[in-house]
């Protein structure tokens, strides 16, 4: 049996990574998780310059999930390259750098800078619902998504994963657009825009008013979207959205994902990724699958 997966030419030891923004650059979680066991570590979004993010409160719990509006706080690409890449390189895992920006130029600057760095893949965040400019502006319009994919691909030395937003009418159309732009893979879903109101204070719970909903509550939506995207494009799909157990991950793979990301569940149990990896392996043994690829997208 083989847990390895090949995502756009990069071989991961297993199909499990972490969702950007839930795991920092791995340092804090390394006290709880042997990073060597992960297929890849996907880092928190990094921009060309430091971003301060949104005011607090930045998070709220909702039934079966949470909302966040952190606003892509990040230390900027210089500190990231100096501190975070060398830290992650100590581990035997793939490094996926999530890139954010406010303009096409911002994204390209980071991607160009990373071309010289020892990282394995890039994930381009065109789907953050919590920043006014950039992010989602590229992620809700197929033409804009295709254009930014093309622009980024000009500078990228590593395979490019385009991270898609669920806040669209047709995820299939968005996936096709970034594939047409040259994306090597797609990842989905980012968070779903939501709102929570404090009925005693009679105001919004999050300082940003709206935030991205994640966690088990969104999992069926994510499975549906992975299924639709998988049936629309040929590039590999990294599925995410509310995965908390091995069963959730397997559902996503059967729907069409070649690999999966675990996000919010890391907050409930920092070592959950290891349980998910072990659980997928057990399922493959029991069900007689000799590779993850053999499971991918078999539910038609």
């Amino acid at each position: 049996m083989n847990m390895k997966v090949n995502i756009a030419g990069v071989e991961w030891k297993n199909p499990v990574t972490v969702a950007s923004g839930t795991f920092g650059s791995g340092e804090e979680f390394s006290e709880f998780v042997d990073l060597n066991r992960l297929g890849a570590v996907t880092t928190k979004g990094v921009a060309n310059v430091p971003w301060s993010g949104n005011p607090t409160p930045r998070v709220a719990e909702v039934y079966g999930g949470m909302m966040n509006a952190v606003g892509l706080q990040n230390p900027g690409i210089d500190v990231f390259c100096r501190r975070d890449i060398p830290f992650l390189r100590k581990y035997d895992t793939k490094i996926i750098v999530n890139v954010c920006g406010r303009s096409t130029e911002d994204y390209c600057e980071v991607v160009e800078r990373l071309a010289e760095e020892d990282v394995d893949m890039l994930e381009i965040n065109i789907s953050c619902p919590n920043v006014k400019e950039g992010g989602i502006a590229f992620g809700q319009n197929p033409k804009a998504a295709e254009d930014i994919t093309k622009a980024v691909k000009k500078y990228a030395r590593q395979p490019v994963i385009m991270k898609l937003s669920p806040n669209v009418t047709s995820i299939a159309e968005m996936a096709k657009a970034v594939e047409a732009g040259g994306a090597d893979a797609v990842s989905l879903i980012n968070t779903i825009t939501g709102m929570k109101i404090d009925i005693n204070r009679k105001t919004f719970v999050l300082a940003n008013r709206t935030g991205g909903v994640s966690g088990p509550a969104v999992h069926p939506i994510a499975v549906r979207m992975v299924y639709e995207a998988a049936n629309a494009v040929r590039v590999p799909i990294i599925g995410m959205g509310g995965i908390s157990t091995a069963e959730d991950a397997i559902e996503m793979i059967l729907a069409g994902a070649s690999a999966v990301s675990v996000g919010t569940a890391n907050f409930h149990n920092p070592a959950v990724t290891l349980e998910i990896i072990d659980g997928i392996e057990r399922y493959m043994e029991q069900q007689g699958f000799d590779s993850v690829e053999a499971m991918t997208g078999i539910v038609k």
Binding site: T22, F29, W51, V59, M66, N68, V70, Q73, G76, V79
Partner: peptide, 24 residues
């Protein structure tokens, strides 16, 4: 807070000087 261990950047406060870790 969300993670409670310093990874998610939910529970920040404003610092007087630029913080070494966050670079903001």
């Amino acid at each position: 807070m969300a993670c409670g261990i310093g990874a998610c950047l939910a529970c920040v406060c404003q610092s007087k000087e630029k913080d070494e870790h966050s670079n903001v």
